[in-house]
Simulated assay, not measured.
Amino acid sequence: MTARAFLIRGLIAGLVAGLATFFVAHQVGEPHVETAIALEEAGAAAPAEHTHDEAEADGHTHTHSHGDDGGTEVSRDDQRTWGLLTATLTVGVALGGVLGLVAAGVAGRIGRLTVRQSTALVAVVGFVSFSLVPFLKYPATPPAVGDAATIGARTGDYFGFLLVSVVAAVLLTVLAVRLLPRYGAFAVTVGAVAAYLVVVVVAGQMFPTVNEVGDFPADVLWYFRRASVITLATTWSVLGVVLAGLLGRLQDQETVAAERKALAASL
Rank of each mutant, 00 (worst) to 15 (best):
Gly126Arg: 13
Phe127Asn: 15
Val128Met: 11
Val128Gln: 09
Val128Asp: 11
Ser129Gly: 08
Ser129Ala: 10
Ser129Lys: 03
Phe130His: 14
Leu132Thr: 10
Pro134Trp: 01
Phe135Met: 15
Phe135Pro: 14
Tyr138His: 14
Tyr138Trp: 12
Pro139Cys: 08
Ala140Trp: 09
Thr141Ile: 02
Ala144Gly: 06
Ala144Ser: 10
Val145Leu: 13
Asp147Cys: 02
Ala148Asp: 15
Ala148Asn: 15
Ala149Val: 09
Thr150Val: 08
Thr150His: 05
Ile151His: 14
Ile151Tyr: 07
Gly152Met: 06
Arg154Phe: 00
Arg154Cys: 00
Arg154Ala: 06
Thr155Pro: 00
Thr155Gly: 15
Thr155Leu: 08
Thr155Trp: 02
Phe159Gln: 15
Phe159Trp: 14
Phe159Arg: 03
Gly160Lys: 02
Leu162Tyr: 03
Leu162Trp: 06
Val164Ser: 04
Val164Pro: 00
Ser165Arg: 01
Ser165Met: 06
Val166Trp: 01
Val167Leu: 10
Val167Met: 04
Val167Cys: 11
Ala168Tyr: 00
Ala168Pro: 10
Ala169His: 03
Val170Ile: 08
Leu171Met: 12
Leu172Met: 12
Leu172Arg: 07
Leu172Ala: 13
Thr173Pro: 07
Val174Ser: 11
Leu175Arg: 08
Ala176Lys: 03
Ala176Ile: 04
Val177Ser: 07
Val177Cys: 04
Val177Gln: 09
Val177Asp: 13
Arg178Ile: 07
Pro181Gln: 06
Gly184Asp: 14
Ala185Tyr: 01
Phe186Ile: 11
Phe186Leu: 10
Ala187Thr: 07
Ala187Ile: 05
Val188Lys: 05
Val190Pro: 12
Val190Thr: 11
Gly191Gln: 05
Ala192Phe: 01
Ala192Gln: 04
Val193Phe: 04
Ala194Asn: 07
Ala195Gln: 10
Ala195Thr: 11
Tyr196Trp: 11
Tyr196Met: 14
Tyr196Phe: 09
Leu197Gly: 08
Leu197Ser: 15
Val198Glu: 15
Val198Gly: 14
Val198Pro: 14
Val199Trp: 06
Val199Thr: 13
Val200Lys: 00
Val200Arg: 00
Val200Glu: 00
Val202Lys: 05
Val202Leu: 04
Val202Glu: 08
Val202Ser: 05
Val202Gln: 07
Gln205Asp: 08
Gln205Lys: 08
Gln205Cys: 02
Met206Ser: 11
Pro208Ser: 05
Pro208Leu: 02
Pro208His: 02
Pro208Glu: 07
Thr209Phe: 00
Thr209Ile: 04
Thr209Asp: 13
Val210Ala: 09
Val210Thr: 13
Asn211Glu: 05
Asn211His: 01
Asn211Met: 00
Asn211Leu: 03
Glu212Cys: 01
Glu212Lys: 03
Glu212Phe: 00
Glu212Asn: 04
Val213Asn: 11
Val213Thr: 12
Asp215Gln: 05
Asp215Cys: 02
Phe216Ile: 12
Pro217Gly: 08
Asp219Arg: 01
Asp219Glu: 04
Val220Gln: 08
Val220Ser: 11
Tyr223Ile: 07
Arg225Asp: 06
